[in-house]
């Protein structure tokens, strides 16, 4: 039951893009076409889940025991950068087709703040999910990270669909490109606000 609440909360109620403002740059950057949006979402999904696993363990077994949590930001970003590189190399060797699909998005992910944001949130914030406020254990953290990245994918795919239609319309010159995209995201966020308070 709790895992179910985590999933609903992370995908709809606290959607990472529309409610938490994380990962907006790539969200605006690659949502022009449905196909690239799907590719990016899959790459993000992969990296967020993996990065959260590794940073959670590093935080628990390295930073906290040695009392050096002030190095958290540095350690996490280095882990993410290294991880992205490794994923890139491994994919290139083992699955060229997947590499072709995700390859160009991987380098962009290092500076996608959604990845670092989720990694930091998971180890520093207390969550409730219907029960007492508590820090997440490893299982919950993994479910949360995976569901959050699904939420990212959902927002991305919906928005790419909207943008494909926008591109065909006659938009006033000053509104062209990012401004009209931002206004559309605002309306999308308004719709997602209907979920707020559903899961605490």
């Amino acid at each position: 039951m709790e895992y179910f609440l985590i999933i609903i909360s992370a995908i709809f109620v606290n959607n990472i893009v529309l409610a938490q403002f994380l990962g907006i740059c790539p969200f605006l950057g690659v949502s022009n076409k449905l196909s690239t949006a799907t590719g990016m979402s899959m790459a993000v999904c992969f990296v967020i889940t993996l990065a959260t696993l590794v940073t959670y363990l590093i935080n628990k077994y390295l930073l906290i025991p040695f009392n050096i949590t002030f190095l958290q930001t540095i350690a996490f970003i280095l882990v993410i950068a290294a991880l992205v590189q490794m994923v890139e190399i491994v994919l290139k060797k083992t699955s060229p087709s997947l590499y072709q699909a995700l390859g160009i998005f991987l380098p962009l992910i290092t500076t996608n703040c959604a990845v670092l944001g989720v990694a930091i949130d998971v180890v520093t914030k207390q969550f409730t999910f219907g029960g007492e406020a508590h820090f997440l254990n490893l299982g919950e953290a993994m479910v949360y990270a995976f569901a959050t990245s699904l939420g990212y994918g959902l927002a991305m795919v919906i928005f790419a669909g909207i943008r494909e239609h926008l591109a065909m319309n006659d938009v006033p010159k000053a509104f062209k490109g990012v401004p009209i995209a931002l206004i559309s995201v605002g309306i999308l966020a308004l719709a997602f606000m209907g979920f707020s308070g559903m899961v605490k």
Partner: peptide, 22 residues
Amino acid sequence: LAFVMAPGAFICLGYLMVLFNK
């Protein structure tokens, strides 16, 4: 209130960008 919340952020930035472009 919507302007303090998430949707207002996107919409405000969108319109400010329009004014800037113009």
